[in-house]
């Protein structure tokens, strides 16, 4: 399958990348491992004028400790991150989500930045141009309708990053640099909750750092998928706990993760969080397993993840 025409540029530093972006009049696109982006291009879901390759920027590839944070460069691959000495010990939820992401080969190419900034997915969206033209364009393709839920006012595509969930459970924040300068926001604030355009990134912004509070946590990641590798999550639940408090993040359903604080560790309290997540999750028939089933599983997997996170803590 051939790609649409675009130009290729490799940036040597962040400023150069941003400059290239500005020169493209907003039509260029940043490229990391390409494992999310290239399939989208092949399907003509995106037709940028140029790729700006970020892999030549050394600064984006490092993992370091700065103050009370672990700072992770977005171009660190999932595989490198998974095998980093601190991750398994300090951030088990992240370790498990990395390990559960696609398959080993894709983990070796896919980056953590690209993973978080991957586009949302839908069975009726990730299709060839011919397929989609025949079916009719939906909101996410610039059309006026949702092809899954008739008369819906919004897009129900699913955000399928496994690792966003664990990073959220670890209260991560991100640093961004763009034509208008730098900013640091909580990871939660990166999500627009709109499936058409799932991120709050401003045009030309580059994700430059992830910051995770460097505290030993206990945690777990539960993933619903049909096959035990390659598959995206049909539902993912990450839980991380530090000192009797924690966060539960539910994703793979709808355009943005759901995040809950876990304060009441009594049986009833845990059930309540699971129940609340189940109520708030709005799966629709846009994945391989049924929507009703996925909704039920929110409860089941949330309880499982919490139980495991608590057990590990003991």
């Amino acid at each position: 399958m051939i790609l649409p025409k675009f130009d290729y540029k490799k940036a040597e530093d962040i400023a150069a990348a941003i400059a290239l972006y500005e020169r493209s009049k907003g039509r260029a696109c940043y490229l990391a491992g390409g494992t999310d982006l290239i399939p989208l291009l092949k399907l003509r879901l995106s037709e940028p004028s140029a790729m700006i390759d970020l892999k030549g920027i050394p600064q984006l590839k490092t993992i370091s400790r700065k103050g009370n944070s672990l700072v992770i460069g977005p171009n660190v691959t999932l595989f490198e991150l998974k095998n980093h000495e601190t991750v398994k010990d300090y951030f088990p939820a992240l370790y498990e989500s990395l390990d559960a992401t696609s398959c080993e080969t894709l983990q070796m190419r896919g980056t953590i930045g690209g993973n978080i900034l991957q586009n949302t997915r839908c069975l009726l969206y990730n299709k060839s141009l011919d397929w989609r033209t025949a079916r009719g364009f939906c909101y996410k393709m610039g059309g006026e309708t949702c092809n899954v839920v008739p008369n819906a006012a919004a897009c129900f595509s699913n955000y399928c990053s496994d690792n966003a969930l664990s990073l959220l459970s670890l209260s991560a924040s991100v640093k961004l640099a763009g034509p208008e300068g730098e900013r640091k926001i909580k990871l939660e604030k990166l999500f627009s909750k709109d499936g058409r355009n799932p991120f709050t990134l401003k045009p030309g912004e580059i994700l430059t750092e992830f910051h995770i509070p460097f505290k030993r946590s206990t945690g777990a990641y539960e993933k619903l998928r049909v096959r035990n590798a390659i598959d995206y999550p049909l539902l993912g639940v990450a839980v991380s706990m530090i000192g009797g408090k924690g966060k539960v993040c539910v994703g793979g359903i709808g355009p943005a993760p759901l995040v809950y604080d876990l304060k009441d560790l009594s049986g009833a309290g845990l059930k309540e969080v699971a129940q609340q997540a189940r109520q708030e999750a709005r799966p629709v028939s846009n994945t391989t397993l049924s929507a009703g089933y996925r909704k039920k599983m929110v409860n089941v997997l949330t309880q499982r993840a919490i139980k495991r996170a608590l057990k590990e803590g003991k």
Partner: peptide
């Protein structure tokens, strides 16, 4: 590193 060459641009 093993790569899926269908997802890699030659200039990369």
């Amino acid at each position: 590193i093993p790569l899926r060459s269908c997802l890699v641009l030659t200039p990369e």
